[in-house]
């Protein structure tokens, strides 16, 4: 099971964008609020992360570089629908974060 820890550094942020800014290939003039997770997760690190840090540093894992604690969405925002320039509706799912955690 995935363990997540709330951390002071890992926060939900938002930015007001055009749908075209997302780079998903849609042609529309509609807009959205995109929310994302950002910030350090050092406080939430476990012995596992410390060990990985030490092993990577001491070159004991060959060329592997396993991921350490990341500030990631642990819940996603509601779906977003919009009408494109050719009068076709599209709905985006799991496109924007609702809640963040160090996982």
């Amino acid at each position: 099971e995935r363990i997540s820890v709330q951390s002071r550094g890992c926060l939900l942020k938002e930015v007001h964008l055009n749908v075209t800014d997302l780079g998903l290939g849609y042609q529309t003039k509609e807009e959205l609020i995109f929310r994302y997770c950002s910030g350090p997760c050092i406080e939430a690190e476990t012995n596992y992360d410390k060990i990985l840090n030490n092993l990577t540093h001491n070159k004991k894992l060959d060329k592997d570089a396993p991921s350490r604690t990341c500030c990631r969405p642990i819940a996603f925002d509601d779906d977003l629908s919009f009408l494109d320039d050719n009068v076709v509706y599209h709905t985006l799912k799991k496109h924007s974060a609702r809640k963040c955690g160090c996982v």
Binding site: I33, D79, L80, S81
Partner: peptide, 15 residues
């Protein structure tokens, strides 16, 4: 789409 309630119920019928 900039209002959370409207955005939610709009996509809830468009889907």
């Amino acid at each position: 789409n900039l209002n959370d309630t409207c955005k939610k119920y709009r996509s809830a019928y468009i889907s």
